[in-house]
Design a binder for these strands. Structure first.
Lengths: 141, 141
DNA sequence: ATATATTACTACCTTTTTATAGTATTTAAT
DNA sequence: ATTAAATACTATAAAAAGGTAGTAATATAT
């Protein structure tokens, strides 16, 4: 009931980028700012590009920028892409031992709890975070 | 944002036990019914006893029964005991990279989403599940 | 054209989680 | 006292997640 590290990193990266006004973020820069293991961070940035959140330019002074409008990226979307919630589960509703004709006893309370969480996460976009937490690039710490 | 297997197993076991009317559940019986790896299940049952949810009797015709009233066991409690949510986090609020004077940008939306989930899970006890899903021991499948 | 600052790919290592195996312990029924 | 049906303990194996290293690819500034 907690995010895994990879997802935590991804949210940290996207949240950081969303609340600054740089026009390009290199892996090296993000590594310095966010204290995420360097090589793992790079791999994750590539993944975030493949997932369509970022686009990369591997050129001098290159790095990563958002591939779409911040309004279009909500937190549930990021979590789903990274944790593959839809893909992993044999049961469309979330649990391996939960099958259609003999559902898991915990199915209903769990899904109720989970859907409330997902609702909140879906309603929060990176644009919302930017609005709330934007950091002035001049006194950028 | 998904439960780990161990927690899933634990909820499955406790939910199963809560909705039947046997007076004793052996590891072997639970294994047959729930399709959880046998040896792992046994260890988990011991853990659930140590956590105070069950009590065991290692005697002929022994097994496991609840150690307390079903009303006193809510789902958040089980999850917390198994996933050690309180213990793991250096930040009291849930994230390793989130420190008091420089909180994680995602802190607020994540905590809001999470607390809604926890609220629902806290409000669901095994007694509620029993009431809703109790299975007649005669036609017990 | 070349050098350079960057990302991309692939293989591998480490740590954590999940699962198994062997043996010891418990205690009621006999 | 012995047997037997159960759990308890400890070590280890297998699988998954997290992290590292080396090298290739990209394409612009020079």
């Amino acid at each position: 009931m907690i995010l895994n590290k990879t997802t935590e990193y991804a949210l940290t990266i996207l949240g950081f980028m969303a609340t600054r006004n740089e026009n390009m973020y290199s892996a090296e820069y993000l590594h310095q700012q966010l204290n995420i293991p360097c090589r793992y961070l790079r791999r994750l940035l590539t993944d975030l590009s493949k997932h369509g959140f970022l686009k990369s330019s591997s050129v001098r002074n290159g790095g990563f920028v958002f591939a779409k409008d911040l309004k279009e990226i909500n937190l549930a979307l990021v979590i789903n892409k990274l944790e593959g919630i839809d893909a992993i589960c044999t049961c469309i509703l979330g649990f391996s031992c939960c099958i259609v004709d003999k559902p898991w006893i915990m199915h209903e309370p769990w899904m109720e709890a989970r859907s409330k969480m997902v609702e909140t996460l879906t309603n929060t976009t990176l644009a919302d975070l930017k609005e709330k937490y934007q950091i002035d690039p001049i006194k950028n710490i």
